[in-house]
Amino acid sequence: MDTAFFVAWIEEIAHVIADQRDHLTKLDAAIGDADHGANLDRGFSAAREALASADPPPATPGDVLTLTGTTLIRKVGGASGPLYGSAFRQMGKTLGDAPEVTPAALAMALEAGLAVVQRLGAAEEGDKTMVDALAPAIRTLTAALEDTPADGSYGPVLEDAARAAAEGAHATIPLLARKGRASYLGPRSIGHEDPGAASTALILAALSTTAAATAAK
């Protein structure tokens, strides 16, 4: 996966978040403050523009993710700005200046992003947050890497990871929120999908879509 792949990933995220903006806002209205879709749409649109207008353009996958993270921190606000922004920046830092990223390196970068989210948000798995989508996706990815096909195609592996994220997000429905704004509702947070977990699942779905599109070329 090269620099162009990661630019394509961010573009795909911007596309899918814009597409699902109202859905995310609806999830957030149920247990939060009805702005998650609008905020992420603003942030990832800005990230896509920042990547397109960067001079010089980002030279490595690490540059792409670091610039994305910085833009999210600068544009989004709320909790999702610092959380997603710091996660992307940490992923960028972890990838360093490698021109090509292996699935194993991507898994390590995602792991580092997750660690930052958990440190900033003090959230554990099961607290009904984005961690509930990201953690199982990384577990699936790491486990699948052990039996990656010999031809090195990573599409199916990322597809499994995206599926694990979506299942993780869905599994937040019966949970009691213990972090973030939904936690103010106490038991009334039960029965709703966490908007942060839902957006994380979309971001990982975009990764899988990008891999499939790249393989098709």
Binding site: D33, N39, G77, G78
Partner: peptide
């Protein structure tokens, strides 16, 4: 002031 119901950004 941030966006409606959204905290301001660090900048």
């Amino acid at each position: 002031p941030g966006e409606i119901f959204t905290s301001p950004v660090p900048d």
